[in-house]
Design a protein around this nucleic acid. Structure first.
Lengths: 232, 232
DNA sequence: CAGGTCAGTTGACCCGGATCATCCCGAGAA
DNA sequence: TTCTCGGGATGATCCGGGTCAACTGACCTG
């Protein structure tokens, strides 16, 4: 990982699996590498602050982070969890409408937004990738709106586990290692930590999941979990 | 309105106030007119069906409609209300992730998505407009996620009134004419009709609003309403 | 080892909003 | 005029999840 810090190196570990870099020509990857800057954060630090001037976008390399919004009344809603390969910061209002905070040690490439946009005008591949990311984000937010508006606590949990299964690198149905604490899950699902605990307990009791440690979830009855999650 | 049906006419009432057509060259407007088709719907009809093949986008000319998602369990969440000038259908997955249903008589221009995208590649103005719309939509969905995850019933109502004040053409603080019924408001805010009624009653009692008819809302204490809405 | 801290769980209780039922009222239709 | 019908309001009751507090266990540090 350390050699990635050396930006003078022509080789940069821009992963082809990641939506932003997927199927790009080497030339585009080089351009991206030139304009990028690697940022390394410890747990609990901000990649960007809510309401600060925007103009930068990020691609997560390692670790995990939350995209969160905090109101003047101090209430917090987590808009998304982001993991290695995820691209964040696309909305281009003048100021960030959210903060991005690391859950663990995080490293991420930071790009000046206007330069990335310029390059995307010249590269059909990059442009298509950004478009795909935009659409994915919008689809995810629609799912979340439905979840918050219509689902019960234990249904939200089931949805959350399936969501993590899809998005968390390395997650498998029989072993999902959650990198976030109960408070983060609660603030993502519009619940409290107590309700998250109780809902997990209920799902365990009903034999749908097991949870050897609080951070590990094993899906026991995928059919049942899917049903409750009510995937449309 | 009827003459707009005559698409052979070089003049088409593409309104400059509307985000899609804003500041476009006459040449672009003409191209748009060529590829468009005017659709006229009665109340309760669908502009597009959830899960049907997508590939079309819409610009509302008159009337109002809802963007809704209905789950297999039959629960409904309204993702947005759309009004004259609004542009809908941008997300380009293969199938519509939502249905668009008219609340009243609606007329709307329908564009083939791929042709609109092609034209946007050639027209900087159109491209910028579409980008702005995308960003607006994303900002709105973030607001809605925060609302559904964190706010109380009467706070949701206050937010809703301010939201309508901004988005509903012709709305003024002392007179907001709501084109949707209580059930629609409830399904937008993640509440029930009864709770909507009771919350409106409470806001009236507290002197924040008045409501001469169920469809008319007058904001009496803008400061108080803003406070409760907790605009970030 | 004791003591402190912090995440998570569990129990007791409460309350906001859902549910169910009834009533009201304005718009048509006969 | 009367009847019906559908949207909205209101009352009674219930319950899911919030609130508050106590407890547990892992992991520190002195």
């Amino acid at each position: 990982m350390l050699q990635a810090l050396d930006l003078s190196n022509t080789y940069v570990d821009f992963d082809n699996d990641c939506p932003l870099f997927h199927d790009l020509a080497q030339q585009d990857l080089n351009r991206l590498a030139e304009m990028s800057r690697l940022r390394v954060l410890r747990a609990g630090q901000n990649l960007c602050e809510q309401s600060s001037p925007s103009g930068r976008v990020f691609n997560i390399v390692s670790g995990s982070a939350v995209v969160e919004r905090i109101s003047s009344a101090g209430r917090r809603q987590i808009l998304a969890f982001v993991f290695p390969g995820d691209f964040v910061g696309l909305s281009n209002s003048e100021y960030f409408e959210y903060g991005i905070r690391s859950l663990s040690g995080v490293s991420a490439y930071e790009f000046p937004r206007h330069r990335l946009v310029e390059l995307s005008e010249a590269s059909a591949g990059l442009k298509a990738n950004i478009k795909n990311i935009r659409n994915m984000v919008l689809a995810l937010t629609f799912d979340q709106i439905f979840l918050l508006g219509q689902k019960r606590a234990h249904e939200r949990l089931c949805f959350f586990f399936l969501h993590m299964l899809e998005r968390l690198p390395g997650a498998r149905p029989d072993c999902i290692r959650l990198p976030m604490c109960r408070q983060d899950i609660a603030d993502f699902l519009g619940l409290t930590t107590e309700t998250v605990s109780r809902s997990v307990a209920k799902l365990k009791r009903d034999g749908l999941i097991s949870s050897p440690t609080p951070q590990t979830i094993c899906i026991r009855d995928m059919e049942g979990v899917r049903e409750l999650a009510d995937i449309s």
